[in-house]
Design a binder for these strands. Structure first.
Lengths: 339, 339
DNA sequence: TATTGGCACTCAGGAGTAACGAGTGCTAAC
DNA sequence: GTTAGCACTCGTTACTCCTGAGTGCCAATA
């Protein structure tokens, strides 16, 4: 087990390295932090830390840099988080007053988060999980096309345009709409498929094909909420900390554009509310993200998170501050979307 | 006036520089292009081109690089565009079959364009301009909130959630919906405001406030289509050609995230269908985009473009190919969205 | 007048060398 | 367990020299 002071040395190294981007040496440490021992002692401690694989020297005559495990230990032992400034808290407060639109709330929040952290911020759209069907609408948008709208009781709206290939009578549409609404109103979304079973049977044979298309699309829609979307902000921050990514940020930009990769990554990370979890450097297995850390928290109501919110940046980031920021935004998202 | 051969020299310089990223010298020119004259002659021509401000030498003992004006002349005299390959044409063909959803069409197209050009591709959402109102819906999404949906006859859907602050009777909503629909159905979008004038008067005093809110929001929605959105793809391509931007792409990433800047820029560029217009380097006045070129075409129906589609990249880009690609995508967008 | 061969000149980039100094590891003493 | 001292390492910086691609200019040529 490493000693208390050795850990303090690690902490100091992480902090200095994060703020200066320069490998930190024993002498600089005792100057900038109040260690009551000599540099030789610090060197001994550093030697221990290096044996433990927590820090590492880029070359013989340079200072030390934290390894992924070093950051990990640092974070795990992080007992007090940096507090957000009053100004920042105020910004978040005012941020969320007055917006009712889901897209708007997410959009503003994600931008705020990227500002607070100076990293790429991301928010996953809320899953419909435990939501119930509130309303189902069919709106004609062209002779042979209709817009399907599914509103759930957490205020989320899903829509899809369907090409029917033939002209459809309006009153017939209204009838279908009524029956479907009747069948699924109030149902949890994962019950929708079951409730729609056999619905075609209620229509004359001539219309069944049509109804089938509608039902199938609706079921698809409900399923589709599993592979949800991300809102992102602050991509430019990547370019600014390009040096920390070994000079090539294109795999990161790719991952960001792909979304799928990121989504899978963050959905595999478990995260309750008020509990930020993170992957540091090579803890994630995605090629090209080995110099990156991902930091997510769940948000939603208190029993069960709706989705995740997080931050992507270089391993060399201010974890303390960023964890606090993610947590704060998650809390506010929960407050305004948590039903 | 510069001679024909001098112009050929310019063309050769542009082509070589675009493909190699290296300043090109007189000797390399006669080797790689079939000039029937000696290198000294070429040097004379280059000297003329330099006097005209079309090329410029990074330093005394280096070859020449095209200036913004050089690219400009090159492009203006570009009489035959590079043809897209059969494979590329096929890709575009198959790309657009089977999608009916606006978002989907734009999404696929923009990704295709970024692949064809290896640049950042952008498509502006179609303005509603000459579109007519097809349908207006009010869908309750929570006790005090309703979703407003406006469908126009080009298939575009606008939606907005409104917080009413008080519970609203469903039958009353239906009544309002009916009246509004009646008032604006079939109207051009720019007539909507006028048609709604005085609508409150038809309701009992107690309800007028409510109706006003709805009407106001609707008018806002219609107006909002003026400041439309962009769909983007291929941001990672920026990082790959980072060298061409002087090593700092963060202003570009900022502009991309801002969107507003880009939107203003491209909406100030005039562009008919089949007519790609472009801003080269410092021809645009946006700080941080001085090493970038923007290339846009209009798309829509034949009389009047709906919106714009284009590409953003370094001034050192393959204009011939990219113009062809933008034109092709614009044509296909017109075909599938041009009403 | 346009083109060409010849030639002196320029200058970025690479290679080689040297001095610097931040930082280390080790050892012996406290 | 801590410390002072010291030899050692090695990346960084600065300087020099050299090379070669490329130029501009001039006098000769068609």
């Amino acid at each position: 087990m490493i000693s208390e002071r050795s850990f303090e040395v690690l902490r100091a190294i992480v902090e200095d390295y994060v703020s200066t981007r320069e490998p930190v040496g024993s002498k600089a440490l005792i100057e900038r932090h109040g260690f009551e021992v000599s540099s030789a002692t610090i060197r001994n401690d550093m030697s221990i830390l290096e044996d433990e694989g927590l820090i590492h020297a880029p070359h013989t005559s340079a200072g030390r840099v934290p390894t992924d495990s070093g950051y990990r230990l640092f974070v795990d032992r992080l007992n007090e988080l940096k507090q957000l400034s009053a100004a920042e808290r105020l910004a978040i407060e005012t941020l969320l007053t007055g917006s009712v639109d889901l897209d708007e709330i997410l959009g503003r929040s994600v931008r705020m988060l990227s500002q607070l952290t100076n990293q790429v911020a991301m928010i996953q759209y809320p899953t419909l999980g435990k939501a119930r069907v509130r309303n189902f609408e069919l709106v004609p948008v062209a002779d042979t096309r209709i817009l399907m709208v599914l509103v759930s009781d957490n205020g989320r709206i899903q829509q899809h345009v369907i090409e029917l290939g033939e002209f459809v009578d309006l009153s017939f549409l209204a009838q279908v709409r009524g029956l479907i609404n009747e069948a699924i109103a109030g149902a949890y979304l994962n019950e929708v498929a079951a409730r729609l079973n056999g619905l075609e049977g209620k229509f004359p044979a001539a219309n069944r094909a049509l109804v089938s298309v509608l039902v199938a699309t609706l079921q698809e829609q409900v399923d589709a909420n599993r592979q949800d979307k991300l809102v992102l902000a602050g991509t430019a921050n990547l370019a600014r900390s390009e040096g920390d990514f070994g000079g090539d940020i294109s795999p990161l930009l790719d991952a960001i554009e792909e979304q799928v990769v990121l989504l899978r990554l963050i959905s595999e990370m478990e995260a309750d509310q008020d509990n930020v979890s993170l992957l540091i450097g090579s803890e994630n297995t995605i090629a090209g993200l080995s110099n990156a850390s991902v930091l997510v928290s769940g948000y939603g109501n208190s029993q069960e998170p709706l989705a995740k919110v997080g931050v992507l940046g270089p391993t060399r980031m201010d974890y303390s501050n960023n964890i606090a920021a993610v947590r704060a935004i998650a809390r506010y998202l929960s407050k305004s979307l948590g039903a």
